[in-house]
Amino acid sequence: MEFFDFYRKDRWPHQFCPGCGLGTIMNCLYKAFNDLNIDIDKTVFVSGIGCTGRVPGYINADSLHTTHGRAIAFATGIKLSRPDLNVIVISGDGDLFAIGGNHIIHAARRNIDLKVIAVNNANYGLTGGQMAPTTPYNMITTTTPYGQREYPFALAELIAAAGANYVARWTTAHPNQLVKSIKEAMQTKGFSFIEVISQCPVNFGRRNKMGDPVFHLRWIKDHSVPISKMTFDINSPYDIVDLNTKGIYIIGDLVKRNRSPYGEIEKEIEVKGPQE
């Protein structure tokens, strides 16, 4: 599969800003699909609203660009009525976790066989750089001119707590690992979630002295710590929360487990009332 078999050449070049991490993620997606030789005709890409929401529009496969925040719910409908399709949701942090936070935790709870790539650029890029629930503490955006004073979400940890089968976090500074992670997600049954920390030099970076994409990428690289080097117990989520607050991203595979996906729950679990 050539690059432009995977992407719609008639829509290229894409309209993302110079240095935007989405292009990198698009490359990784192509590479993972190419390596695994996945039938693109049997794959549906679903997205919500936002810069990331435009990505499926460039992919030469069935694509569904939905309303703000509801991408997961749409994907759930598709997956349940056509279980043979690969359903991939690629959307932004604001779309999946701010307005759509409810749908994603429920999909993770159901452990429905969706692959979710959440591109976390720490702000709402499309509408001009407002604060998102992932904006690190004290960072400046257009709606937090005095610095963000809410604690940011730990996306991957939340999804792990909600019950997903595969959870990983990578950044655009780790494209090779990201490719590997996408492959892993595609081969895992059940809800798979990859958070990708991405740069948004124009909106987020510029207000935080990282206007040059190179600086922003360096900042991401400096603030990511591989999970293998962590000294604490990852089962205790509190420490992770604290680290996340400080704007440190723990990268790597957070959870790999084998809970039964939606529709395949063991039948022997039976509620036994005391009367029996």
């Binding site: 792990a160 909600a162 729950i265």
Partner: peptide, 24 residues
């Protein structure tokens, strides 16, 4: 079993304290 899971619930359930703790 509930009125909309007449054949037994096929979904996993939330572990509420775990989610709340993971959010800090």
């Amino acid at each position: 079993r509930t009125s909309t899971t007449p054949y037994g619930n096929i979904e996993h359930s939330f572990n509420l304290p775990y989610i709340m703790a993971s959010l800090g």
